[in-house]
């Protein structure tokens, strides 16, 4: 991340020195403002979902879900530390069901939990790739936008989207299996 950051930011600033020097600081501040907007929205989304997730854990439903997903988890990650397994399972089921608000808090907890154990590099990589290529069943924001543009058949794109996102997840999983040592 450090390397990407320094290359991109140096290159962009360098170009702007010649083209539009005033824009450097103003666009950085602009970016920060957008980040703050998003953070405020996220506070609300996370508050709702983290509240619900707490209920999910306290009622023992999280454990049930993780037992249900155990075969899939074994196949993808191998043996997992018990403490991380619940978070991973909830994250994956939230991904599958398109509850994007719930995936992030669970995801971060899962990564932090995995980090406490040794030899979890493979699991962390696999977990990240699954999230970064996540299967989305209903692309709701796209559907809404197609509606506003009065498309003749907004839902046309659902099937191709599901197919394409499945392809990306499968390729991601295969690449991890091939290139990352357990």
């Amino acid at each position: 991340m450090n390397i990407i950051f320094i290359i991109l930011i140096t290159l962009c600033t360098f170009i702007l020195i010649f083209t539009n020097p005033e824009a450097v600081l103003s666009s950085m501040l602009n970016g920060g403002e957008k980040a703050l907007d998003l953070t405020l929205k996220l506070v609300v989304i996370y508050a709702v979902w983290m509240g619900m997730t707490e209920l999910l854990e306290k009622t023992g439903l999280a454990n049930k879900i993780s037992n249900l997903l155990k075969p899939i988890n074994m196949l993808l990650f191998g043996e997992l530390p018990k403490s991380a397994e619940g978070f991973i399972s909830t994250n994956i089921s939230a991904n599958l069901l398109g509850m994007s608000g719930a995936t992030t808090p669970m995801g971060i907890k899962a990564v932090n939990e995995l980090e406490k154990h040794t030899n979890t590099n493979y699991a962390i990589t696999m977990f990240f790739v699954i999230n970064a290529t996540s299967i989305q069943l209903i692309p709701s924001s796209v559907l809404a936008l197609r509606n506003t543009f009065s498309s003749s058949s907004p839902s046309d794109i659902i099937l191709p989207t599901i197919l394409a996102t499945t392809v990306s997840t499968i390729i991601g999983i295969l690449l991890v299996k091939i290139f990352v040592k357990r």
């Binding site: 930011i9 170009i15 083209t19 920060g32 957008k34 703050l36 971060i108």
Partner: peptide, 20 residues
Amino acid sequence: IFPYLVSIFILTELFEISGL
């Protein structure tokens, strides 16, 4: 997560505005 978001958004802005 706020500082991480800031850095990503700054990069995106600069990336766009620099013409890169």
